[in-house]
Amino acid sequence: MRKHLGRPESRTVVVWAVLTAVICGLFSAAFATWAAWHTARPLPDATETTALVAEVLPGYEINEVDPGAALFTFYSQPLRPRNLKAMLFLDGGEYQQGATVATVKTAPRAVQHEMVALAQGRLRETGWRVLPPHVEPELTCRAGGGCTPTGGPSNVSLVARRDDTALDIHWLANPSIDGTHLTVAVYRATPPAVLPAGIGGGLVGALLGGLVFAWASRRTRPPHPATNGVTALYAITMLFWWTPVLLAAPNLLGHHRDEPHPVWHPLWEWLGQPALSLFFVVGAGSALVALALATVPRRDADPLATATPEFAQ
């Protein structure tokens, strides 16, 4: 393998080839899944959401329904070209899955845990797969110390899924300023096309990434004039591409363990995208410059030195 990569003397070139193929496969799989996500049905409108809330939460009076603007939104609005600068400069985390949100101001006269239990029962009766509720106690924090639970009501989230629709019912520990007791967010589940698209896109990206690395490695072996420059640029690319993955994946894994998710976060968020998309752009730029340098003609030995004696004479 080292000989095929043009570096028979190197002990690490195979490792770098694998790392390159893996990261290229992950990025191409993320793009493929993003494209496949758009096969999902549009978000429910206000009428559908109102009917859904009435079905799963009878007795609750809806105050307002805010229809989702798009399947994925940036600050609750569809992503537009003018948003790209904000996304690049550490604001990309606001690119999130869209949802239609209903707010409820009038709730049945019951204690919180009874309302949660009634909602769980109603969801199961109407064919929803209900995950365990997630409880966040209200905390009191002191200036010089830690935070302790108040002992009062808690913020409770109940998530469920039915077919291609998921919902998140969120009870507030205390009504908000406008009197909202709870919110119901309705969004789409992962479309069936996402998994095969991710696998296929990942395999193609890994194959192409490995082939390009092999070509550049063979092309820039010494005495190529840009060997050192290409090596430095390649190191920059790997640093800027792998750092977001190593930062985002463990944090998102902990988040999934702490809270129930009827729909997992999309693949690109596990790669730190687009929250750290500036890292990806810088790495892609250094990779393109490195490939351009790899096309510089090699500086091999003088052809006269290897000529036949008859030609030399």
Rank of each mutant, 00 (worst) to 15 (best):
P191C: 09
P225Q: 00
P132Q: 04
P303R: 04
P303S: 06
P78C: 01
L252K: 13
P153E: 13
N174S: 15
I177F: 14
G210N: 06
R299Y: 05
R41V: 03
P8G: 11
A275F: 07
A292H: 04
R80M: 04
T220H: 12
C141T: 08
V281Y: 11
L84E: 02
Y75T: 12
R161I: 10
R298M: 09
S28M: 01
V296A: 03
G145W: 13
I62N: 08
R124M: 04
Y60T: 08
T100R: 11
V184E: 06
A193V: 06
W16G: 07
R298W: 12
Q97I: 08
H4R: 15
A312W: 00
W268I: 01
N63L: 14
V184T: 03
Q96L: 13
G283S: 05
G229K: 06
V56Y: 05
V156G: 09
R109S: 02
A54T: 05
R299F: 08
E138N: 13
H255K: 15
M87R: 08
G68N: 04
R122W: 02
V204Q: 01
D164L: 02
H256W: 00
V230Y: 10
L52Q: 09
Q96R: 14
P309V: 13
V245H: 09
T103K: 10
V296S: 07
H113F: 14
V204S: 11
R188A: 05
V230N: 12
R2Y: 04
A216Q: 06
R162K: 14
R122V: 08
P42I: 00
S217K: 06
L90Y: 13
L233R: 01
A110D: 09
R298T: 03
L252I: 09
A185S: 04
A119D: 07
G285F: 09
Y95Q: 04
R221V: 03
E125D: 13
V14Q: 08
G68E: 12
V15N: 03
P8E: 00
L43I: 10
T49K: 08
A17N: 10
G272C: 05
T126G: 03
L90E: 03
H255D: 14
G201K: 07
W16Y: 04
G229V: 03
G92R: 14
R80F: 02
V65G: 06
E138R: 15
P149D: 04
L139R: 12
A99Q: 04
V281M: 10
A46L: 02
S217M: 08
A287M: 06
L276G: 09
T148E: 14
L182I: 07
E61G: 05
N228K: 05
T39S: 12
S154F: 03
S157N: 09
L19T: 05
L195H: 06
V56A: 01
L167A: 03
L271P: 05
Q97S: 02
E138I: 10
P78V: 07
S176F: 02
L278Q: 01
A70G: 09
H255E: 14
